[in-house]
């Protein structure tokens, strides 16, 4: 677009147009600075709140007792020592169970014992259902411990029978 003399004059003197009006720059700065600081403080509050929330969560998680490895409720009703004992018993049962399945050999006595183990697991499921329906109480907790003790004994018997069978097989190999 072709510039006329007016437009040309303004373009040539553009910078001078920014120097005409004066105002109290210090006073306006004070107001800006004040509002700016308020705005910065307002930004800090959500951060402080988040920080507080995070610290609360950490403290809460540190003050909580570690959860026992047993995956259902009534054990929490026992005192600390009983909880430790039950957890230990539970781990022993798991360990023995894994060993029994790993070393499983065919044989009528052993098959019978594994059937019994299967029935016990059905009882375990039934117990869990009861916990869900009735809620947890000390009597059920005690029943659970008795159950693991029985399962542990049965697994020991299975492992004993497996060991006996393995020994017999070795002897038979030597003889024949």
């Amino acid at each position: 677009m072709r510039q006329d003399s007016f437009e040309k004059y303004i373009e040539e003197n553009r910078e001078r147009f920014d120097e005409i009006e004066n105002f109290d720059q210090d006073l306006l700065w004070e107001e800006i600075s004040e509002k700016n600081q308020t705005s910065a403080k307002n930004k800090i509050w959500p951060l402080l709140f988040l920080g507080f929330l995070l610290i609360s969560l950490i403290i809460f998680s540190l003050t909580q007792k570690p959860k026992p490895d047993v995956d259902f409720g009534p054990i929490a009703l026992l005192d600390e020592e009983a909880q430790r004992e039950t957890t230990k018993l539970y781990k022993q049962v798991q360990h023995k169970e894994a060993e029994a399945f790993n070393r499983k050999v065919a044989g009528p006595e052993i098959d019978e014992l594994f059937d019994e183990l299967k029935s016990m697991e059905a009882i375990e499921e039934l117990l869990k259902e009861n916990f869900k329906d009735v809620g947890t109480n000390e009597k059920l907790a005690s029943t659970l411990i008795q159950y693991y003790e029985s399962k542990s004994r049965l697994l020991e018997l299975i492992l004993f029978e497996i060991a006996k069978k393995e020994k017999n097989e070795k002897i038979e190999k030597k003889i024949f």
Binding site: D18, E19, E21, N22, W29, I32, S33, N36
Partner: peptide, 14 residues
Amino acid sequence: QRKLYDQYAQAMFN
């Protein structure tokens, strides 16, 4: 912030 303000305030005001 003050330096930035001083640099531009006058021109912006006009």
